[in-house]
Amino acid sequence: MKILNTLQYKQFGGLEKLSILLCNELCKEHEIYFLSDLAIKDYLSKDINFINFNFNKNRYNPFFLKKTANMIDEISPDILQTHNIKELQILNYARKFSKQKPPIVNTKHSLERKKYLNLADLVVGVSSGVCETIQVDKKILIENGYPFITPKKLSRPHKFYITFANRICDAKGVTLLIEALNLVKFDYECHFFGYGDSKIYEEKVKNLGLQDKIKFKGFVKNIGDYLYSCDLNVMPSLNEAFGLSSLDGVFYAPLMIATRRGICETIMPNELIIEENPQFIAHKLDEIHANYDKFVQIFAPIKAKKDEFSVAKMAQKYINAYENLIKDFKK
């Protein structure tokens, strides 16, 4: 199968990671073309046909759309895969100029209600919560998958070692976790990993006198190694459609606690769920520190299910969806 995947690159987050993981898996057995910004190219398999494409151009410009249509005709894909509304609009409008009119699949990664989803021939929701926001008839659920990479033990702080691995912003609970850490009763060191402007949070940490305990490490490619080396990973998200970062925790951390958001709502037991207030989280952290082995055992059955979220299973579900859609188009 020949698949044309598009990705309007803004910053490296869960959507970008998912698109790359999916295509890197699909290219093992299928011909993949990937339209995006050059910033993405180094993350892609060498077997993927990368095309530098500027999605910031006017989506209503007929010359741009005709040029895009000519590119589609030259590639002659069986399916068009998009990941946001602007990509979907561009390919749908360009398809009107195209000699070939392959079906479009759009994957919805957010909980926000979106217009124009009806332009897609099939909409994929990455979680049951996301599917509830998709108001079109032709939709399916395909939960995100993740590849497991054997982790390595790293040198780590000698204190109780806590990690946060997600985008650095309030929507992911950064302020919430900092305020909770200010209330705990044991000695620890917490490292925040991820993209985002950490300056405002570093100032808050300094004002609380926690600069020796809380450190911002930025984005790292080997986050699995750090999670594997920690005592506890915390996912205090206030907004999460699915949460690929949650799978990082499941795959690699010895123990994780999380808010009832995204995939954590369905896979995490109540003992490992945290409420969205600092006092509750601080109390849970104190409880875990005092009864660590007990909570590791509670988390163990969750870790044992990691194969359910393999990227190979996710990719096969996409292929099945593509094949069924293509059959419908040929009727």
Rank of each mutant, 00 (worst) to 15 (best):
Y195L: 06
K2E: 06
F53T: 09
N24H: 04
L65N: 09
F219V: 11
S155V: 13
K303R: 15
K213E: 08
Y226P: 00
Q89E: 12
L22H: 08
H191T: 07
A39D: 14
E265L: 04
I149G: 03
E25Q: 15
D137Y: 01
L183K: 15
Y60E: 12
F192K: 02
V123M: 08
V184N: 04
A69K: 09
N166F: 10
S45E: 04
A165L: 01
Y195C: 02
P77V: 03
A94P: 02
A312Q: 15
F63W: 13
A94R: 10
N106V: 01
I3F: 05
Y322A: 08
I40N: 02
K305T: 11
K294C: 03
Q89F: 03
Q135W: 10
I85Q: 06
N49C: 11
V124R: 07
Y161T: 09
L141A: 09
L111V: 04
V126K: 04
P254C: 12
A321R: 06
N233D: 15
D121G: 07
N277H: 14
H83V: 00
K17T: 12
G145A: 09
Y33Q: 03
R156Q: 10
A171C: 03
L122F: 05
E87A: 06
D197Q: 14
E189Q: 15
F53M: 11
L38K: 15
I178E: 05
G125W: 12
F295P: 03
P102S: 08
G224D: 06
G145N: 07
I134L: 10
H191K: 13
N54D: 15
H83S: 01
C23H: 11
P102N: 05
E265P: 00
I273L: 14
I298G: 00
I273Q: 01
L7C: 13
L183R: 14
S310D: 06
G218I: 09
L244E: 00
K331N: 07
F160H: 04
T266G: 01
N5Q: 13
Y195A: 13
K10C: 06
K330R: 10
Y116S: 11
F295R: 05
R261K: 15
E143H: 01
A120F: 03
D328P: 00
A290S: 15
N84L: 06
K67L: 06
F160A: 04
L122P: 07
F280H: 15
T6A: 14
L285A: 11
V124M: 01
M314T: 05
I200W: 00
L208P: 05
N84F: 02
